[in-house]
Design a binder for these strands. Structure first.
Length: 701
DNA sequence: ACAATTTTTGTTTTT
DNA sequence: CAAAAATTGT
């Protein structure tokens, strides 16, 4: 595509941003202002304009999913091969650099990546051993993450310990944690960034090399970068200062990650002088009504400097707010409403999403959707790779590559039972700490010493033989490795049918991948990354919808205590973040926005009386339809209805049928009583038809 | 050492 | 109300 074609359909501001070629630039891009479009075009423009190889531009995205989408879009614009383009999250890009420069690393390259769960397991293990209160692990993991992402080193921490009145125990745990990581040759996600920074800073030649490679740096969702990540891109773009950052302060909902509280602008202008600033204030996504309502909420944030957005999309439907007596009614209403909208035929289920503040809210919604026979996908609550059997198998896989991985070894040393219990393990732990070596090495040592009984030694010997056998098979594809595990460990035999299915799914979907690549991608992939939602309603948390849009959005649980969440109402800054979260959700809606809440909700096993969210007061009365639902006459009717629905109906949605006159069609809905069943069918050539099953002469195919 | 049982505990968001 | 931890019995 030519330069001019790449600039087509961009507004003046976007065009200016794409064409601006030299020097730092920051784009303040409000929700729905086409920032992904902008970055994509810019990337393509840089490729064609300068005849640049695509590997000379680094593009940082917030999620892997966003990176993949971006690659797809760019592939459509330019002929360049993008297979090894530098497009990805901070973590995946850092991993790429570290793997490429592995020889320069302290532990000769092959490291494993610990994901959040591995991290938690390790911290819990350490707390246990140190006889500290184990339940503190969550806070400790996040504090360690904060230190690392603020580039505060352990040494600095220890020397400032006295002056800072610092929690000494935390520090001890941190030291132990780092020691364990080193012995296991493992990096956590924050380490990926800090190691990359250290590598570049201690190695000027290398830094120069990468500064040279990257003629341009693009960053999406800039407001979410933490100090370490920012430091890294500062390093990389120092020489040429060709950097474009796109962000919106109103969408910063990750203060917990150790993000700078500085606004996008102040953070950036401190380090890059003569920064060009562009404001994108035209919204291409939402209707006027949705913009008005969302703006009325976000403008109550003192720190928000955003001017009101505008759109050419027209006024649109009024935003609706419903208040119900119970959460069941709320869920039922949402499901019913979705079905109605679907049956009208203008929207399909993948145009719709239900959002909530916390994952546990999804349950009751799922039930309601099942009753209405609406297909749905819950995004992000429990991801495939977090299932127990998958994690177990992955632990075996990790050990095949790195026998020193203590976290994985602890996980499977007695799985299936090998008669190696807590007592033995304890002795091993002590030995390994004494030697400063991994558990695997400690076992080797213990086998040749007198500290253990012969029967225990035999068991350990068998285990060592197993691990050696596994790793002797070399590093092949995931399938090869899984087969090896199947034939030697005896673990597969302990699985039930469901677990077996999950493992075969693992083989089926990733079987051909090289093992090392696979393990990296597992650690770097998050639960939102590979969800395809074609034909499904999406259910997800407000945090998870960043970067997504839907024609119809339901935000549920708009109650004080839930949004804002009761744990985040203490400081004004907490409250502001909750408000931004609400704003984020609202601005995901293109056409229709529903907001619902319920008075009675079962939260942590008790029924609670909820008040409507305080944020609702910020919405002018005339912007919105306010509807309060009275309690349903009785519970009996609802129970009857559920029974009726659960009766077997001849067709499920999605079923294909043949009609004598209209040909092949897809069942969209099936309902009614035994002798009077009606179906809604979508015939591609004819449109949506409602038929009585008795007379329709449908044939199932 | 392990399975089955009772008791305790903790309940945000996630790159 | 779940899931995890502690306790008990074999």
């Amino acid at each position: 595509m030519s330069d001019n074609q790449l600039l087509e359909h961009l507004n003046n501001d976007q065009r200016r941003a794409v064409e601006y070629m030299s020097g730092p630039m920051i784009v303040l891009a409000c929700a729905g202002s086409g920032k992904t479009q902008l970055i994509t075009r810019k990337y393509a423009y840089l490729c064609t304009r300068n005849g640049k190889d695509s590997s000379s531009v680094m593009a940082v995205t917030f999620t892997n999913k966003a990176a993949n989408e971006m690659k797809d879009r760019i592939a459509y614009l330019v002929p360049n091969k993008l297979s090894d383009a530098w497009i990805g999250t901070f973590f995946s890009l850092c991993n790429k650099i570290l793997r490429e420069e592995s020889r320069q690393l302290p532990f000769a390259g092959d490291f494993v990546i610990y994901d959040n769960e591995d991290q938690c397991r390790l911290i819990r293990h350490i707390l246990n051993e140190m006889k500290l209160y184990e339940a503190l692990y969550r806070g400790i993991v996040s504090k360690i993450s904060c230190f690392k992402s603020s580039l505060i080193t352990l040494e600095e921490l220890m020397s400032s310990c006295n002056t800072f009145d610092f929690d000494e125990k935390l520090l001890k745990v941190y030291v132990r944690y780092q020691d364990e990581m080193k012995r296991s040759r493992a990096l956590d996600l924050d380490d990926l960034v800090t190691y990359t920074i250290n590598l570049l800073e201690s190695n000027p030649g290398l830094l120069e090399k990468y500064q040279d490679i990257f003629s341009y740096v693009l960053i999406d969702e800039y407001q979410d970068t933490n100090y370490a990540q920012y430091h890294l891109i500062k390093l990389l773009s120092q020489a040429k200062k060709n950097i474009l950052a796109v962000g919106d302060d109103n969408l910063n909902v990750y203060k917990l990650k150790g993000n700078d509280s500085d606004s996008v602008l102040t953070k950036f202008e401190k380090d890059f002088t003569d920064t060009e600033i562009i404001n994108l204030s035209q919204n291409y996504r939402c209707t006027e009504n949705i913009l008005r309502v969302s703006h009325s909420v976000i403008s109550k944030n003192a720190s928000s400097t955003t001017n009101e957005l505008w759109t050419e999309r027209g006024v649109g439907e009024k935003v609706c707010h419903y208040w119900f007596m119970t959460e069941e009614e709320e869920a039922k209403y949402v499901a019913k409403n979705m079905k109605d909208l679907y049956l009208k035929g203008n929207y399909s289920y993948d145009d719709m999403a239900i959002l909530y503040r916390v994952n546990l809210q999804s349950r009751i919604l799922e039930e309601a959707l099942k009753n209405e026979r609406i297909p749905f996908k819950v995004i992000g609550s429990s991801c495939f790779y977090q299932k127990k059997e998958i994690k177990d198998v992955i632990a075996y896989l990790k050990l095949m590559i790195n026998k020193d991985d203590n976290v994985s070894l602890r996980r499977i040393i007695n799985l299936p039972p090998r008669g190696i219990g807590a007592n033995t393990l304890n002795k091993l732990e002590i030995e390994s700490r004494k030697e400063g070596a991994s558990l695997y090495k400690a076992i080797m040592k213990m086998l040749n010493s007198k500290g253990l009984s012969q029967s225990v030694k035999d068991k350990l010997q068998l285990f060592i033989l197993l691990i050696d056998e596994l790793s002797s098979h070399g590093i092949g594809t995931v399938n090869d490795s899984l087969k090896t595990i199947g034939s030697y460990t005896g673990y597969i035999e302990t699985l039930d049918e469901c677990g077996l299915n999950n493992v075969s799914e693992l083989m089926y979907s990733n079987g051909k991948m090289p093992l090392t690549d696979f393990l990296d991608s597992v650690a770097l992939t998050t639960n939102t990354d590979e969800v395809t939602t074609r034909g499904y309603v999406s259910l997800t948390t407000l945090h998870n919808v960043k970067g997504l849009e839907f024609a119809i959005v339901f935000i549920t649980g708009l109650e004080d205590g839930l949004l804002p969440y009761f744990k985040a109402v203490d400081t004004p800054e907490d409250l502001n973040e909750e408000r931004r979260l609400f704003y984020l959700g609202m601005t995901r809606a293109k056409d229709i926005l529903f907001m619902t809440g319920a008075k009675k909700r079962k939260l942590y096993s008790k029924f609670q009386e909820q008040e409507p969210s305080r944020f609702l007061k910020d919405i002018p009365k005339d912007c919105c339809m306010w509807i309060e639902k009275k309690a349903v006459p009785s519970n009996i009717t609802s129970k009857l209805q559920i029974e009726k629905v659960s009766l077997e109906l001849p067709y499920n949605t999605g079923c294909r049928v043949k009609h004598p006159k209209w040909g092949v069609g897809v069942i969209r809905d099936c309902y009614g009583e035994e002798n009077d069943i009606k179906v809604t069918v979508n015939f591609p050539n004819v449109g949506i038809k409602r038929l009585a099953l008795k007379y329709a002469n449908l044939e199932r195919i």
